[in-house]
């Protein structure tokens, strides 16, 4: 038994972290929000690094990695509040499509994701809107327990405004057909929701850490009463409390990436939503009035965390799902039950 990442996995994570620190720092996020909202140049570099193909099977030109590798990269995308839809490709679309790679059209799409020539968007019936639907070449959409793969030309997209200025959401109007059906497996939409939930949780973890890091930097330098405010217990304890919440959310997220078990994903989701909300609340408090302004970068991360808390099953949904599992008559209890992964 070993609950840890390999050196290679961590090295890859560090490479991506360094890349995003250089290409997607808070100043660049702010610039993006004031401008087009997406950076084609940054997207091209992400493709060049092979990131879009991270979880695409090697047969389709991807790196063929798992979500255990992927979760670290998704966390980094969250940490940077990356505006481009990398996460949806590597944590939702490619893992879903990989099971159908024996279909020629699906194999071509997977190859396109890896090559950066094809973008997918994904929408679960639980969510009224689909992120980045307008720019997608294909959409993975659920309807009546079935999953459909729908070309962009077959849907009508009506843009809505997200609280997150960098999130592009839209209502999608479409008609399912036999030619769009990908899978009628009754478990397929739950799997999609779980993948989306894991992706949102891993991003939330990164976002929460950024908010704490920004606030800790500020607390080290901002002076009041002749001292750095971080020297006051009232301030440092706030940040320490949130860091505890983040660490206790981190373990469930990493475990969920490994097991992909619904109960682990729901647990991770609830833990991260709470940790990110606490991080946002606390970071604003530590920044004082500055934290409430548009001029400080904090709000970009807070708004992303807020938007992600509401999709792929919100706290309410995942807590209810978890309580059904924990309280069901056949729930495993006892020494060999509570911690069992099945």
């Amino acid at each position: 038994m070993k609950f840890a990442f390999t050196e290679d996995q961590l090295l890859f994570r560090d490479t991506v972290r360094d890349f995003l620190a250089a290409e997607c720092g808070p100043a660049q996020v702010r610039e993006c929000a004031a401008g087009e909202g997406r950076s084609p140049a940054r997207w091209a570099k992400l493709v060049e690094m092979g990131l879009t193909g991270l979880t695409v099977p090697e047969a389709q030109g991807g790196l063929g990695l798992s979500l255990v590798d992927g979760v670290l990269i998704v966390e980094e995308a969250g940490r940077a509040a990356l505006p481009e839809p990398l996460v949806d490709q590597i944590a939702i679309a490619a893992p879903l499509l990989a099971a159908f790679a024996d279909r020629t059209d699906v194999a071509e799409i997977l190859a396109g994701i890896a090559a950066g020539t094809v973008k997918l968007a994904a929408g679960h019936p639980l969510d009224p809107f689909v992120a980045d639907a307008g720019d997608a070449d294909y959409l993975l959409l659920g309807r009546e327990d079935a999953l459909h793969l729908v070309p962009r030309g077959r849907v009508t997209v009506t843009a809505e405004v997200s609280v997150d200025p960098l999130r592009r959401i839209a209502a999608v109007d479409w008609t399912p057909g036999n030619d769009t059906l990908l899978s009628a497996d009754p478990a397929i939409l739950d799997r999609m929701l779980d993948l989306g939930g894991l992706a949102a949780a891993a991003q939330g973890l990164g976002l929460a850490q950024t908010m704490v890091d920004l606030a800790a930097d500020y607390a080290r330098t901002r002076q009041q009463f002749g001292k750095a405010i971080g020297s006051f217990q009232a301030v440092k304890h706030h940040l320490a409390t949130v860091q505890v919440a983040i660490e206790f959310a981190r373990a469930p997220v990493y475990k969920a990436a490994f097991t992909l078990a619904p109960r682990d994903i729901s647990h991770a989701r609830v833990a991260v939503i709470d940790a990110a909300a606490a991080a946002a609340r606390t970071a604003i408090q530590v920044f004082g009035a500055m934290g409430y302004t548009y001029e400080v970068d904090l709000h970009f991360f807070m708004k992303r965390a807020w938007a992600l808390a509401g999709v792929w099953g919100d706290r309410h949904y995942h807590l209810a799902r978890l309580s059904r599992m924990v309280l069901s008559d056949d729930a495993a209890l006892g020494a060999d039950g509570t911690f069992a992964d099945k």
């Binding site: 969510d127 843009a159 809505e160 405004v161 997200s162 609280v163 509401g310 919100d314 309410h316």
Partner: peptide, 23 residues
């Protein structure tokens, strides 16, 4: 304020204005 957003659920994450606005 947080309770209001939690009561609203996913609806809380969408602004009422047209794209390009921040209402």
């Amino acid at each position: 304020g947080k309770l209001a957003m939690d009561v609203l659920g996913p609806e809380a994450d969408v602004f009422p204005g047209e794209p390009g606005t921040y209402e």
